[in-house]
Amino acid sequence: MSAHISIPMYQRAVPQRYRLTGKLCKSCGKINFPPKAVCKYCLQGASFEDVRLSGRGAVYSYTVIAGGGAPPEFETEARCKGSYPVLIVELEEGPRVITQMVNPPEEGIAIGMSVQAVFRKIYEEEGVIRYGFKFSPA
């Protein structure tokens, strides 16, 4: 039993998940990520331009999900690693994203530390691999 993100639904977010495509609001110039139909900053603009985000950012907050409490689709990963970190990352371009962290430093995660997007498997469902971004220490 895993989260009901259908394959077509996942597919529609491939530009975001595979290469962090943000949407630049043509009214106010700010970048929405993930995309919105109406800009979340000016609450006016509804026309956007694609921009590729750098993938560089800093840890805004973090937690470490203990193995036993992981969502079912992350159970294999939790069993392998015991636990895994989840971050809120503030991207260089402004937006924040929620993401898993890979290669966490042995001395622990700190708010403010620099991180960089990497390409990883997120989970598998119906035999189909869902790829996407995670972040690693920069």
Partner: peptide
């Protein structure tokens, strides 16, 4: 679900992020 859940987070995880901050 599309973002929070697929980052491997749980409901506790989301509040934990608030607590950390």
């Amino acid at each position: 679900t599309e973002y929070e859940r697929l980052a491997g987070s749980t409901f506790a995880g989301i509040y934990a992020l608030m607590a950390s901050r």
